[in-house]
Design a binder for these strands. Sequence first.
RNA 1: GCGGGUGUAGCUCAGUGGUAGAGCGCCACGUUGCCAACGUGGCUGUCGUGGGUUCGAGCCCCAUCACCCGCUCCA
Length: 534
Amino acid sequence: MEMEKLVSLCKRRGFLFQSSEIYGGLNGFWDYGPLGVELKRNIKEAWWRDMVSGHNELVLAEEAPSLFHMVGLDSSIIMHPQVWKCSGHYDLFHDFMVDCKESKKRYRHDQIRGRWVTSRGAEIFVATQVGGEEGDKETEQRALKYFNLRSKQAEELAWNGPLVSLTTVADFSKVLAPEAKTLGTLTAPREFNLMFKTIVGALGGEEDAAFLRPETAQGIFVNFKNVVDSSRVKIPFGIAQVGKSFRNEITPRNFTFRSREFEQMEIEFFCHPADSPKWYQYWRDRRFRWYLQLGLASSRLRLRDHDKDELSHYSCGTADIEYAFPFLPPGEFGELEGIAHRGDFDLRSHMEGKLVRQGEQLVVESDEHGKPRHRGSGKDLKYFNDQTRERFIPHVIEPSAGADRGTLAFLCEAYQEEQVEGETRLVMKFHPRIAPVKAAIFPLVNRDGMPEKAQALYGELKKEFAVFFDDGGAIGRRYRRQDEIGTPVGITIDGQTLQDSTVTWRDRDTLQQKRLPISQVKEELRAFLAPAQS
RNA sequence: GCGGGUGUAGCUCAGUGGUAGAGCGCCACGUUGCCAACGUGGCUGUCGUGGGUUCGAGCCCCAUCACCCGCUCCA
């Protein structure tokens, strides 16, 4: 499937529009049209029902290690700036980057190292991305090449010190960039703000700077104690949240896949450290099944465990649920959801201050005065189990899903072109639960009382379902119009309806028709749209 | 951020300096008894945006924005 066809359909039928389109658009922002908003809402509501409101804490869920609670939360988008300092986003999201004008490569300023060397009367800084002995070797080879020396002439290079960071270099005109052949090809370091900055207060200045959240998770962590104290939940339990997040992506691309404003569906699941591996496994498998049940094909969906060296510094296990989007090269997958075992990193950070890894331990990062680099709240976020009299910091399992990425995956998956009697039928094969319109109601022709009967049925169904009424044009055309927006059922009032009160039920995917009493339509639709068990 | 391509009606696209077009879609009326029927009529454009050259610009030049492809980046 070509992506342009889907993008065109999305615009033509009102799933997705470019943001601010009449003003030329805005890179990285998208609007959901009348059908798109229904689709995305259905996905978010399916998630909320399946994960939160539909969860029965009295019954052991399939494959769950034990009973557990689930509750929801809706926290603010703008939070105290200290939240992002302790979470690590503030430091990680403020990168200084340098560009190489020769190689067109971009580097993180603090990740380039190099050595000062003098030869043939010139002193230059030979830069590399490699550290340690490898870095020494590489800088020597590149210095030899630059000065046109043979390997045996290495003693003509006078090294003026060990590998040091590029951040110690003020004058870039003597820097030989990692993949350049000439000096001074690096631009001055430029700051990349990956978090959206804003000002709180009408008279606010720079000291009133705050950030739009880059993830919803932190709103859950900072409310952990509030939820425990107010809701009678006991560990293990999860807090779920759906909401907008914002990141200044350097290169927004691939339709809505990498947007600067996007919506997340996140769960932070709190459990006893000893049980956390089992819970990690549980969420990892359950979340994968959820996508399968809503209709993503197993051939394009995969569950991928991160390698050890891919794990964040705090994580003891992460898996991605990935989809083979059509805009990616064959064999490549894009992330829909990450399930991470985050240990006690987040709660501890908000207690003690921003943490860094020191060997096997996480310790509070300190500044040059030996004080915490980013001070925590100082509040005790431990959990007390009054049965066992145990007090501990819970471990956290985080299934973090992208609502827009999920929506895009369902759109890609649904798009089908079929040959029907020599003509191309464009059909969106959405799972009935997420289809924007559940059923279309048609009078076969506009006479003999058929419109009246159809309108009455429409009015009755509309109270409970998203249904659509269409009496325009030939019946075949009306079916095809609904196929294009993925309506799973067409219900037609015809001549026979007037005699025996039965209607035609037409299935989108099989094109098969069956008759059923008009009085049973509601019940049939209910059964058709019922969630699968998970 | 770099290089290449594209931008004209709701969609797909034609239009190489001289009166803005086609197909599809959409709307109305008639017709129409189950898979994009037919007839008649109708709506639709700051030619992405801003500036320049020219008697005259959709077309040439400059800038800018957006989208696509390839690099780069992706906590």
